[in-house]
Amino acid sequence: MTSTAAAMPISSTQREVLEGVARSSAAAHREVVRAGVLLDAAAGVANTVIADRHGVTAVTVRAWRKAFEVDGLANWGKVAPGRGRKPTISEEKVAEILELTTKTTPEGMTHWSCREMAKRVGVSKDTVQRIWSELGIKPHRVDSFKVSNDPQFTEKVIDVVGLYLNPPEQAVVLCMDEKSQIQALDRTQASLPMVPGRAGTMTHDYKRNGTTTLFAALDVLTGKVIGQCLPRHRHEEFLKFLKTIDREVPKGLEVHLILDNYSTHKHAAIKHWLSSHKRFHLHFTPTSSSWLNQVERWFRDLTEKNLRRGIFGSVPDLIASIEDYLEVNNEDPKPYTWTATAESILTKVAHARAALDTVQSQN
């Protein structure tokens, strides 16, 4: 059981600043540790426990607590007297920048820039950038997400993650999906090769020469990929790919396929085929949860390393290039490492849903 102590008083603004520093990947390691120490102190954790948890001494914990109780964040990051540059930004100014960045936008714009914020609060743009960096704030970036509303979300997550972390014996676990409408793009002019002092070049415009669909199944244990390019992604093509998997996976092994909820995967013809191929077991990811399927990461690598800068005069050229990539991948396959447990995923999703509920209730 974690020992407790008298909780150190802390304001909501101070807590926000400290939590930002504790999460930051850009702040100095010492400051990240110090922020974690102070947050634990505010939670009432005993000094000795805090020291063990963060790898510092109890003397250091007491010193940081005392300094915070006296000065708050006003002297955050200050070095010993007489050494280094003295801080010129007050705690109130840091709090103002945090408040404006996270809860407002400049007039007529979607997010703050360093220059706009500096103009608003009366500091230099470099000061704004430093404060954002220390707090791990990146207003210019936005991450895409969608919280799944699948009523069977929990059951599906537990099922899929269980296959990743505890795969069954005498079986192969394959992450399968289609990458549809891959375009055979040819540039309108010849590209120039990279030379010392100049990057390779290619035209911004292109000619479309048709498309193909790649069906791929990633073996989560070995990293090998069974792949097949087909004209479309109907149930007929999916059935053809299942037969390819059946031929390539050694007899005597069960086949666990992780795939999404696309209607093609549940077609009557597919169900009929599966009824006579008992070794195949389909596991569906929750809706809006493609990130749970490891083959999506392989598709991303394929795009970055082969497709994005490729030049294809025809669909056969495109297919040949994809098949070359598959061959190279399977000569020296490297599986992806999955570490997230079902519990950790469900906890994060629960937090995301709670945050969305809060935002929606305020609108």
Rank of each mutant, 00 (worst) to 15 (best):
residue 22 A to M: 09
residue 32 V to D: 04
residue 83 R to F: 01
residue 8 M to I: 08
residue 317 D to N: 11
residue 42 A to R: 08
residue 135 L to M: 11
residue 261 N to H: 10
residue 72 G to C: 03
residue 51 A to I: 06
residue 265 H to L: 04
residue 69 E to P: 02
residue 7 A to Q: 04
residue 61 V to G: 00
residue 101 T to C: 03
residue 142 V to E: 10
residue 182 I to M: 07
residue 220 V to Y: 05
residue 266 K to D: 05
residue 235 H to Y: 12
residue 99 E to T: 13
residue 168 P to V: 07
residue 137 I to F: 00
residue 320 A to K: 14
residue 304 E to D: 15
residue 53 R to A: 09
residue 135 L to F: 13
residue 153 F to Q: 13
residue 358 T to L: 14
residue 237 E to A: 07
residue 217 A to R: 01
residue 271 K to I: 00
residue 216 A to H: 09
residue 236 E to D: 12
residue 199 A to Y: 06
residue 336 Y to M: 02
residue 148 S to T: 08
residue 263 S to L: 11
residue 235 H to T: 15
residue 17 V to P: 09
residue 8 M to E: 02
residue 31 E to K: 11
residue 75 N to F: 03
residue 335 P to D: 10
residue 195 V to T: 13
residue 335 P to Y: 05
residue 359 V to L: 10
residue 114 C to E: 03
residue 239 L to V: 02
residue 18 L to F: 07
residue 96 E to P: 07
residue 190 A to C: 12
residue 128 V to R: 02
residue 294 Q to Y: 09
residue 186 D to G: 05
residue 280 F to S: 10
residue 255 V to I: 15
residue 106 P to A: 04
residue 205 D to L: 09
residue 129 Q to C: 15
residue 307 L to W: 04
residue 206 Y to N: 06
residue 112 W to D: 00
residue 82 G to M: 05
residue 84 G to T: 07
residue 262 Y to K: 00
residue 232 R to E: 14
residue 270 I to D: 06
residue 111 H to Y: 12
residue 160 V to F: 04
residue 223 G to N: 01
residue 180 S to V: 08
residue 59 V to G: 07
residue 149 N to P: 00
residue 26 A to C: 01
residue 3 S to V: 03
residue 213 T to D: 05
residue 347 T to E: 13
residue 330 N to Q: 08
residue 127 T to M: 06
residue 1 M to K: 07
residue 211 T to D: 12
residue 132 W to M: 00
residue 231 P to I: 10
residue 90 S to R: 04
residue 94 V to A: 01
residue 41 A to K: 01
residue 356 L to T: 03
residue 80 A to T: 03
residue 302 L to W: 08
residue 191 S to P: 15
residue 354 A to M: 09
residue 336 Y to S: 07
residue 218 L to R: 07
residue 31 E to H: 15
residue 62 R to P: 13
residue 214 L to A: 01
residue 344 S to H: 00
residue 11 S to V: 11
residue 252 G to F: 09
residue 112 W to T: 06
residue 11 S to C: 09
residue 292 L to V: 06
residue 140 H to S: 04
residue 291 W to K: 12
residue 179 K to T: 05
residue 198 R to I: 06
residue 163 L to H: 02
residue 254 E to Y: 02
residue 1 M to I: 13
